Simulated assay, not measured.
Amino acid sequence: MNEPFILPVTYQGKAYELKARFERWGYTHRIAVLIDETTFTFEPDEEGGYRALSIPGTLVHSVPIDAGLLNAIAEKLISLNNA
């Protein structure tokens, strides 16, 4: 079951409202987040955080995504998970 939601993230003083969806993967889950026109998938890691994955063939950016933004999204997902 995929559950769409809006993920509010603030990074470098800018507020983002990113489209996201929760995806069940067997006994775990992933969260797909749309940044511009590229979907990044975040999955839980062994330390209780989230790591960002990109699906091959989906990167359409001519400018790379800021790794700091991906970290800010991961931190937001951790805070939602702990709420």
Rank of each mutant, 00 (worst) to 15 (best):
L80D: 10
N2D: 11
I73T: 04
A83T: 07
N82E: 15
A32W: 07
N71F: 04
T28K: 09
T38C: 15
T10L: 06
T28D: 14
K14N: 10
V63F: 15
N82M: 12
Q12L: 13
K14A: 14
S54K: 07
I55H: 10
S62G: 12
L77R: 00
L53I: 06
I6D: 13
A52Y: 04
N82C: 08
S79E: 14
L18M: 11
Q12N: 11
V9H: 06
T28N: 11
E75G: 01
S79A: 14
G57C: 08
F22L: 14
A72T: 01
F42A: 03
I31F: 05
K19N: 14
V63W: 11
L34C: 11
A15C: 06
F5E: 09
I78V: 15
N71K: 11
E37F: 12
H29V: 04
V9Y: 07
G68L: 02
Y11R: 03
R30M: 10
T58R: 09
L7V: 02
Y27E: 14
F5S: 08
E43S: 11
L18D: 07
I78S: 03
T41G: 04
G57I: 04
E17H: 14
L53Y: 13
A52D: 12
G26C: 02
V63H: 15
P4I: 11
G48H: 00
D36M: 05
A52E: 11
R21P: 00
T39L: 15
M1R: 03
T28H: 06
L80Y: 04
Y16Q: 07
L70D: 05
E23Y: 00
L59Q: 13
T10W: 03
P56D: 10
P44W: 01
A20H: 02
R21T: 05
R51G: 06
A20Y: 01
A32M: 09
L80K: 04
F42Q: 00
V63C: 11
L77F: 00
V63T: 15
K14Y: 07
A83K: 08
A52I: 02
W25L: 14
I6Q: 15
G49M: 04
F42H: 00
Y16E: 09
F22Q: 11
N71C: 08
P56W: 06
T41K: 03
G26Y: 02
S62A: 13
Y50E: 00
L59T: 09
L7A: 04
N71V: 04
N71T: 08
E23A: 08
G68M: 02
E47Y: 01
I35E: 09
H29N: 10
A52R: 00
I31R: 01
E47A: 09
E47V: 01
Y16D: 09
Y27T: 05
T39W: 15
W25V: 11
L53G: 06
E17W: 05
F42M: 04
E46V: 03
R24Y: 03
R30S: 12
G26N: 07
G13C: 08
L69C: 09
L18N: 04
V33N: 07
L34W: 07
E3H: 12
P64N: 13
S54A: 13
F5M: 10
A20P: 02
L34P: 03
A74C: 02
R51M: 09
